[in-house]
Amino acid sequence: MSIANGARIVKESFTNMSRNRVLTVTSIFTVFITLLIIGIFGLFLLNISYNATALDELLDVKIFLVPEADVYTINDLNETLNRDEKINKVEYISQEQAYEATKELFDDDMESLGLGADFLPASFVITLKDYDQVDYVVDIYRQYPSVYKVTYHKESFDFTSNYSKWIKNISGVLGGILAILAVLLISNTIRLTLYSRKDEVIIMKFIGATEGRIKIPFIIEGGLIGFFGAIISFIVTGFVYVRVYNMFMNSSGDELFLTGLKIAPLQETLLMVFVGFIVLGVTLGVAGSLFAIRKHLRV
C-alpha cells in the first residue's frame, strides 16, 4: 500500500466518523468512562503494591521460640521454614539482636531497668507468598514444641487479603462490563457507518477490492474511536493523579506522612497509564470494529 493510499484510507475513516458524529462521540465517551474506571482502580492497586514494602512490616508473622530452644532445634526449624512453599522470606532474630533493637527504642534504658540480653526470646520473622494462608501457617507452626508463640497483625492481613481482593474484583467486573459495553457501542457505530456506506462497499466488492482494503477503513475507524477515548481518559486520570500526588507530597507533616505510605512516582506512573490506555483503547476499538464487520464484509 502506497503512502497516498494509506493517507486516503485514514481520511476515509475520519470522514466516516464525522458523518456519524453522535454515535462516534457516544462510543468515544464509553471508551473514556471504561478506561477512567479501569485507570482509577488500576492506580489504586498500583499504589497498594508500591506500598507493599511499607505494609510488609504489618504483614510479618513472628514465630517466638522457647528460651530453652538449642541451636539444633533452631536450625531444624529454620530449614523447615525455608522449605515451606507457602513462605516467601525467613529471617532469624536472635535474642541479642532483639535486645539491641529494643535497646535503641528505649534509649538504652534497658540495663537500668535490669533487663538483660535474655529478656527477649529469639524469633523467626516470616513473610508469606499468599496472605490468605496466614491462619493455616500460624496453626502449623504454633504446634511446634520449640515455638513459644506465633503472632501476626490480623487486621492488616484481613485488610490486604479482603480489601485488595475486593478492589481487584470490583475493578475487574466493572471494567469488564464497561469494556463489553464499549465494544458493543463501537461495533454499533461501525455497523451504522457500514450501513451508510452500503453502496460503496458493494461497489468495492464488485470492482475487485481485497477484503483487507474494504475492512481496513472500518478497523481504523474503531481504532481511532478507542484512541480518542484513551486520550481523554488519560487527560482526566492524569489530572486527578497529579492533584493527588501533589497533595501527598505536600502533606509531609500530617497523617499521610506518618503512616509511612508512599505514592508511586508521577512520571513513570503517567507514562505507564498513557501507554496502557492507548493500547487498551485501541484494542477495544479494533475489537468493536471486527465484531461489526466479521460477517458483513466478506467478498
Binding site: 466488492k205 475487485g208 477490492a209 481485497t210 477484503e211 466478506r298 467478498v299
Partner: peptide, 10 residues
C-alpha cells in the same frame, strides 16, 4: 476466497 478480488477485476 483470496482469489475472488482478482477474479472480480476480470
Amino acid at each position: 476466497r483470496h482469489q475472488i478480488p482478482t477474479f472480480r477485476r476480470s
